[in-house]
């Protein structure tokens, strides 16, 4: 079976699923710098998409637009059937559906790990505290650090902090998870512990969009790879297609630099 056959099969399989994220001609400027230039893409349920590209290519900006940390200026973004507009209710709804993990973890330093995780379920999802704590402990178990619940983020290592951040995002029971270079700020020996958690998450069927430089992760887990440059989507394809036989010159150049 050729690569294109595989792609076709994938496309057909995906077409049967729900759309989770739909972007249509999204444009965004910072001052006179165009960060996003006509981004059009559809991400399906349970799909794992890895976004690659040189720094400054707009990949972070794009996923930050998806939960409205940045507002796009033109085009449409629809997440799980809800369009991102100025509508407060839509923004609230999307943010509680979309979990996000940051490069710098951004844990709340004045709260314990447990409080970090239960804060949003209690105040946004309006869950009872006991229930939220139970869930939080289960999530800590899942990311492999159940014993750190009472500590403060400053007492944890980078890898542990990032896993807490993932647990915090999962505590909202999101349908989509966004990862903004989750391993870039980590020491090399801690990267794998975070990637393992992400792989497990991908296997469990979470819709994921990951900006990363971890090519191994992309090869192993991604259903689809999107390559961006200068705010545009240059190429989209399965990992095999992307890493073995990219069709665009710019992609080849990028891969030759990075591999």
């Amino acid at each position: 079976m050729s690569v294109s056959d595989a792609t076709t099969a994938l496309t057909e399989e995906l077409a049967a699923r729900d759309d989770m994220i739909v972007c249509e001609g999204v444009n965004k400027w910072f001052g006179d710098f165009q960060a996003l230039d006509g981004i059009t893409a559809v991400i399906k349920e349970r799909e794992v998409v890895v976004v690659l590209g040189p720094s400054g290519s707009g990949k972070s900006t794009w996923i930050r637009c998806i939960n409205r940390l940045e507002a796009h200026q033109e085009g449409r973004i629809v997440v799980d059937g809800v369009e991102l507009t100025n509508d407060v209710r839509n923004i609230e709804r999307i943010r509680s559906e979309v979990g996000m993990v940051f490069q710098q973890f951004n844990l709340f330093p004045h709260l314990t790990v447990l409080d970090n995780i239960t804060l949003a379920p209690i105040w946004v999802r309006k869950r009872p505290r006991d229930e939220a704590e139970e869930l939080a402990r289960a999530l800590l178990e899942r990311v492999g650090i159940p014993e750190q619940a009472e500590k403060y983020p400053g007492q944890l290592s980078g890898g542990q902090q990032q896993r807490v951040a993932i647990a915090r995002a999962l505590a909202m029971e999101p349908r989509i998870m966004l990862f903004d270079e989750p391993t870039s700020a980590l020491d090399p020996e801690m990267i794998s512990e975070v990637l393992d958690v992400m792989k497990e998450l991908a296997r469990s069927g979470m819709t994921m969009m990951v900006v990363t430089h971890e090519m191994g992760f992309a090869r192993e887990v991604a259903d689809r790879v999107i390559f961006m440059e200068d705010g545009q989507i240059v190429e989209t394809g399965t990992p095999e297609h992307f890493f073995t036989n990219p069709s665009e010159e710019r992609t080849k150049l990028f891969l030759s630099q990075i591999l």
Binding site: D19, V22, E83, T85, N86, V88, N90
Partner: peptide, 22 residues
């Protein structure tokens, strides 16, 4: 909805009511 083409059409675009417009 189930198909990608209808997703966009199904969501109402345009301005939300004023009391929900950020």
């Amino acid at each position: 909805s189930n198909t990608d083409q209808t997703t966009l059409a199904a969501t109402q675009s345009g301005r939300p009511p004023f009391y929900r417009d950020a």
